[in-house]
Simulated assay, not measured.
Amino acid sequence: MSLPRCWINGEENDRISAYDRGLSYGDGFFSTMLVQSGQLMNWSSHYQRIEESCRRLGFAALSEARCLEELSATFACLSQEQKQQALVAKIIFTRGEGGRGYQPPPTMHGSLIIQWSPAPTADTAALQLHLCQTSAGSNRSLAGMKHLNRLENVLARHELMRNDWQEGVMCTDSGEVVSATQANLYLISAQKVTTPRLDLSGVAGTVRNALPEMLASHGWQWEERNMQLRDLLSAEEVFLSNAVRGIMPVSAFVASRDEVKSYACEKGAWLAAAWQQYQTDLSVNLNR
């Protein structure tokens, strides 16, 4: 069978109940993972996010053993040719059916969804960023989590599509820089990487979670702080990251028609290569 393929609670199926709370209310979360020749990259960061999301949403715990068992079992169903490809595995966990309105059911019967699809073609060209008019919402209760309510990102991606932009920078209504539309954002100065704090907005990505340790091993510094557009316009280099594409250097930021900042990309390219090796060292084998 061709990709994409989908399993729900262990059964191959791409139809979910109309009463599932993930569909009705976005009551759930997800994590998107890169798998190369059966090696699941940066697994510890993904499971840390899964565990933390269950805790914050009050879900029944999803054990690491069950996650790996389901991922391995579904991976085993793919063809030998597909297993040798670069793949994207996506775990979605919802609260399932039940409850009255927004009120969750007293006992959770969750829906564990695993999707397999081909990874996008690798592109090493540096990106150009534009400033999105779509703002990032602020909510301390949800900040950092990759929950299923992603409408602001959908609207931002629609904005990119309308304008034929590669990527965009999203800010809060108060002007704090948060992220790109589907990636975390970083500035480089000398051997120091700075990224926006995500205590009020945004998604704490899995590459972002693992980067401090990788940087420290190379003698680099790490900083999280509030960030403004002026910081982007004065940065030495800028790069993005997400779980599937890794580290992506940025060549320019278009803040407005009259305000364009160009960046060097040498350090970002070096970090991208270092990340490729580092995430492999953090991988687990799904060939069981």
Rank of each mutant, 00 (worst) to 15 (best):
R197A: 04
T194N: 05
T172Y: 03
A126R: 01
R100V: 11
C54P: 08
V169G: 11
H147S: 13
S53N: 14
G98R: 01
G144P: 14
L57V: 03
A243Y: 10
N42E: 02
T172E: 04
A65M: 13
A252G: 02
R197Q: 11
S138C: 15
W275Q: 11
C171M: 12
R66Q: 15
E167Y: 02
M170Y: 00
L71G: 01
A76T: 07
T134L: 06
V238A: 07
A156W: 04
L187R: 10
L286C: 13
G28C: 11
P106R: 05
M227G: 02
P120T: 00
S31N: 14
M145Y: 09
I247E: 09
G205N: 10
D20A: 09
G246T: 00
N163K: 13
R15S: 13
I50Q: 00
E52W: 03
I247D: 09
S24Y: 09
A190N: 15
A18C: 12
M108K: 09
T74H: 01
R150Y: 15
D20P: 04
G28V: 03
E97C: 13
V178G: 08
R95P: 05
S189E: 15
V169K: 08
S45D: 06
L233A: 12
V207N: 09
P212G: 03
G98T: 07
D27E: 08
L200T: 04
S117M: 15
R21Y: 06
L215I: 10
S256N: 14
F239M: 14
G137M: 05
R157F: 06
R150L: 15
W222T: 06
A204V: 05
G98P: 09
S44I: 07
